[in-house]
């Protein structure tokens, strides 16, 4: 009768407690992996937004004969749009990185 208790496998709660104890010892397990394409996405967004701004500015120039102010305005607005896109992309990647490391470190 007493041998039954010794041979019972450890309960799930006991196993979970052991896992939690081990997990607490390593608080920062691997952060979310970054791939080379991540930074390139932000960079290309910036460059293409600037380019689109320049093209649209120049087109407005040709249309309204306001050279060179149309081109300049387009350059500035495209630059601003590119910066905005770049910050957006980086913020989005930071958020998803945090979400990934959080789920990796989640204890039951």
């Amino acid at each position: 009768m007493s041998t039954e208790n010794e041979q019972k496998p450890p309960s799930l709660e006991a196993l979970n407690k052991q896992l939690d104890a081990v997990r607490k010892l390593k608080p920062d397990s691997a952060p979310a992996t970054k791939i080379p394409g991540d930074a390139a996405r932000a960079a290309i967004d910036f460059a293409s937004a600037t380019a689109v701004g320049i093209v649209l500015g120049y087109g407005f120039d040709v249309w309204q004969h306001t050279s060179p102010w149309g081109l300049l305005m387009g350059l500035f607005i495209g630059f601003a749009a590119g910066l905005k896109l770049m910050f957006q992309e980086i913020a989005r990647q930071n958020r998803s990185d945090e979400a990934k490391t959080k789920t990796d470190n989640q204890t039951h």
Partner: peptide, 17 residues
């Protein structure tokens, strides 16, 4: 204007990338 340009730059960035 800024939002419009960042919206219009999307196909170009996709293509060029």
């Amino acid at each position: 204007l800024i939002e419009l340009i960042s919206f219009l730059s999307r196909p170009f960035s996709l293509a060029i990338r």
